[in-house]
Simulated scan of single mutants.
Amino acid sequence: MEWLSDKGDRVQGKRAAEDYLMMQTVASVIDADLIAFQEVDGPEPLSKVLDPLKYDFYFSDRVKRYKRSRGSNQFTGWAVKKGVEVIDHKDYQPLGLPTFLSGGDLRYGAYIEVLRENEPSLHLLSIHLKSGCFEKAVRRNNSCKKLDRQIEALAIWINAKHKLGQEFIIAGDFNHYLNERNEWAWKQLLDQTEPNSLINLSASTPAKCKARKFNYRTKRWEHVVYQKLIDHIIASPGAIDKQFPPEAKQYKYSYHAVATYRLSDHCPVIVDL
């Protein structure tokens, strides 16, 4: 949700009441049961977009670690419609690339389990991977090297779920063009996981996200159209209908909404299971 925060320290996060109202409108039109969110500073700003009387919020455990932070943070998490039974698991911390001295500075995977009647539980991971490596080769820069390690950590989580016979969905900002012909991250994820254990539900999703982006060099907002997808939804085969596999779609903001309101530099990606 691009620096969804009310601390006022980020130009992208400075939103007026009418901006929040438009974000509420988008959320109500989509009317999702499960929302994997990224870049949210805490429950208070999220409550300005999603009705807390309608949704329960499950934030990354990092929200406790940075509770007294004066600056805005980018937390992952889930918003789940009330009435849906959920187990809130500990974050998948290896995505933060921890060391012996720290828990890691990158974002953790927010992990919940949704219980369903007469069907297996769904294990859900909301992620936000390292930025700066949208399509470059691993050897080219430090961001790609970190993303490479995160892909390896993601493969370990997927393999564990596969061995346990648990169905899963991973959704969020991969910060990489997984659908491009010469990309490496999706290929690597497939190579490091069990055969036929993974489906990219957004593999054929057309991208044409109209947005405004702040240019730090010129100190101005620019209108952009993103024609490649970095937000993806991937799943285990047992989590979806095999006869009629669902395909994710992108919710596109109108030109008027982008020009008038401070929304986000990402367009929501949606799938009906």
Rank of each mutant, 00 (worst) to 15 (best):
Glu2Gly: 01
Trp3His: 12
Trp3Asp: 08
Leu4Gln: 03
Asp9Ser: 02
Val11Gly: 09
Gln24Val: 02
Gln24Tyr: 01
Gln24Leu: 01
Ala36Met: 09
Val40Glu: 09
Pro43Lys: 13
Pro45Arg: 04
Leu46Ile: 08
Leu50Thr: 03
Leu53Thr: 08
Tyr55Ile: 04
Tyr55Cys: 03
Phe59Asn: 07
Ser60Asn: 10
Asp61Arg: 04
Arg68Val: 02
Thr76Tyr: 08
Ala79Leu: 10
Lys81Glu: 09
Lys82Asn: 00
Val84His: 13
Glu85Cys: 07
Asp91Ile: 10
Pro98Ile: 14
Phe100Tyr: 10
Phe100Ile: 09
Leu101Pro: 01
Glu113Val: 14
Leu115Asp: 04
Ser121Val: 01
Leu122Ile: 11
Ser126Met: 05
Leu129Trp: 00
Leu129Thr: 06
Gly132Pro: 05
Arg140Tyr: 15
Arg140Phe: 14
Asn141Ala: 10
Asn141Phe: 10
Asn141Thr: 11
Lys146His: 14
Lys146Gln: 14
Leu147Val: 01
Asp148Arg: 09
Asp148Thr: 06
Gln150Leu: 05
Ile151His: 03
Ala153Gly: 05
Leu154Lys: 01
Trp157Lys: 09
Asn159Cys: 10
Ala160Gly: 01
His162Ala: 08
His162Val: 12
Leu164Ala: 15
Ile169Gln: 06
Ala171Val: 04
Ala171Ile: 02
Gly172Pro: 00
Tyr177Lys: 03
Glu180Met: 11
Asn182Glu: 15
Ala185Arg: 07
Ala185Glu: 07
Leu190Ser: 00
Glu194Ser: 07
Ser197Gln: 07
Ser197Thr: 13
Thr205Arg: 10
Thr205Asn: 04
Pro206His: 13
Ala211Arg: 13
Tyr216Val: 11
Thr218Val: 07
Ile230Val: 15
Ile234Phe: 06
Ala235Lys: 03
Ala248Gly: 06
Ser254Lys: 08
Thr260Trp: 05
Tyr261Met: 06
Arg262Ile: 05
Leu263Arg: 03
Asp265Val: 03
Val269Trp: 07
Ile270Gln: 08
Ile270Arg: 05
